[in-house]
Design a protein around this nucleic acid. Structure first.
Lengths: 343, 343
DNA sequence: CTGTTAGCGCGTTCAC
DNA sequence: GTGAACGCGCTAACAG
């Protein structure tokens, strides 16, 4: 079993009594082999349980039919949904997906990117850990890249992203409409274009209502439960607590909810909570969580489509100008947000 | 960019003014090339941004340094955690992971398995969709397989699984200790060894207390929220509702909780809920959910270790007898379970 | 220590 | 329609 020596085309050719190229033609459905010979060959293939060696084929054709997907944090359900979209669409087109988790470390991300290059994947889907890092790795002679979720700053690239700015703008306007004035925003790391856009969206909505998103109302977390929990505790216990908390991702929201439960702060009567990213559990937590949902599955699908287009450029100009595919998010109002509390 | 023509060893050799094999020796750290030549070669490699073509290398060596991971349902956080363990451990040993989602369809699973064979992965981690399906595909001349979570029936295979039987036995004993007699068990598809073992564990615990796990108390769902929800509704609205509900996976528990919330049934005072699989949100839902947690990350890690051992057999006997690595689960008592309700 | 040579399994011209 | 020969990029013998 350690042998791992499968049959080759030569073996099949020998058994079928034809030449290698005939077998090749059959395997690749060239449609130039006579029907009776075709069936003989196919029988031989089945008998030997032959399957072509993709490595050798790739060496010859220059295509591996593999896509690389590099995500910052596979622990985040958002990326799992995107992964599903990627996989489904990849399968559809005869591609396999090499999944890499950067675990929020640029160094690991770079390592993955290099490994993918060595594997000669035909294209890469990248949800980068850092929008500032200059990626020399995606220059020249390497596979085309499509960014998802988060994009590099000041660079025109192929990407598919949510309307982060608008989503947060609308979200905050909704909160303001409820009468909230002291709104705390808990953002992820500002090295993500995603976080930056979201914060800007919040800022604009507040400015329009002559409210300021003051420094003390903008809290920096990462994307994990713990940071949401810690920030939630300090926020709720402060002398002048916000009447609404908007977390820019759903796991921090989970932390906030835990803090709220522990402190027995009535929600939404005392404090409203809203979160970016929808989740399975959003309807079941108590209170159910108002969220802004992203079409993550579609994001994965669209990204593969875009990537495939630059892998197989129909026309030359098709790959000339980088394309941005914007996706719309939707506000799902549930139980955790309500009118502001009046003394 | 569509060119995708990277530099080859020959290019590097030419630039460095050495022979191809010298470059190869440097690339593979053979340690047989003189220090000054080594540095010359390395400089050339860096200058050209050369990275070896893994396909060609694999063709030559018979190893691709790729592992395949096939899971029934990547949507399940349990498998995501396992995936993390797999990836981390694979990276550690210089392997990449080809992730495939069977989406609970045997046909798709088979397709993935064949694709992985064609890609000549060095080994496969498989969480099968069905314990009964006879997998001819994992016979002979194919890569070694390690099963995770769910195993084929009546077959000695390499696998790493949780102590499903014991876990449920202990869980149900805990419920019985609380005074519960009418315990409803909601299981996944009984084509999974996992489900079978869990149900048997429940059955034994109940028998020991002279309780019977009657047919009408065993409910068949899948592993999704919806089925939990539907079953929950019918259970709670029946004329003789159970005093405790034990779901054999956590997403069905989410469905149960939704039903409870909707019907405003007091939990745990009227009905206790317990679930297999722990989750992020288990502490935050209301009431917080009592669960049986599996060490899924370790499962992934251990599976890779086991797989690597059969890929690189130190001794012949190492691969001779299939090994089962059992993992222990832990009961996490939270707010959703309590003493039985007395009229 | 270093260079030369022969395939690994496949797809692809070409002659037949 | 079909078959023989070449080479994709690399590693492993072997010769120097």
């Amino acid at each position: 079993m350690a042998k791992q020596t499968s049959y080759t085309m030569r073996d099949v050719a020998r058994l079928a009594g034809v030449s290698i190229s005939t077998v090749s033609a059959v395997v690749n459905n060239k449609g130039i082999v006579g029907p009776e010979l075709t069936s003989v060959v196919k029988k031989a293939i089945a008998a030997m349980n032959f399957s072509p060696n993709a490595g050798a084929r790739g060496l010859r054709t220059g295509r591996t039919h593999m896509l690389g997907l590099v995500v910052q944090d596979i622990t985040n359900p958002f990326f799992v949904e995107a992964l599903r979209g990627v996989e489904d669409q990849a399968i559809e087109h005869g591609y396999e997906v090499l999944v890499c988790n950067s675990n929020d470390q640029s160094a690991l991300e770079l390592r993955h990117l290099n490994a993918l290059h060595t594997k000669r994947v035909d294209g890469i889907l990248l949800a980068p850990t850092d929008s500032y890092a200059v990626r020399e790795t995606l220059s020249q002679d390497r596979a085309p890249v499509v960014f998802i979720d988060c994009v590099p700053l000041k660079a025109k690239v192929n990407c598919v992203v949510t309307d982060n700015f608008d989503a947060c703008y609308n979200g905050v306007r909704y909160l303001i409409g409820l009468g909230h004035q002291r709104i705390a925003v808990i953002c992820g790391r500002l090295t993500h274009s995603t976080s930056i856009d979201r914060v800007e969206g919040c800022r604009k909505a507040m400015q329009e209502s002559n409210l300021l998103l003051r420094e003390e109302h903008l809290h920096h977390g990462d994307s994990h439960i713990e940071s949401g929990y810690r920030i939630g505790l300090s926020l709720l216990q402060s002398s002048d607590p916000p009447t609404a908390i908007f977390t820019l991702n759903n796991r921090m929201a989970l932390g906030i909810l835990r803090a709220i439960t522990e402190l027995k702060v009535p929600c939404p009567s005392r404090v409203s909570v809203m979160s970016f990213d929808d989740a399975d559990w959003a309807e079941v937590v108590s209170p159910s969580l108002t969220t802004i949902g992203q079409p993550s599955y579609e994001m994965g699908k669209d990204a593969v489509d875009l990537l495939l287009r630059s892998i197989l450029p129909a026309t030359e100009q098709a790959e000339a100008k980088p394309q941005q595919i914007p996706l719309k998010s939707t506000l799902r109002v549930r139980g955790s947000t309500g009118p502001v509390y009046k003394k």
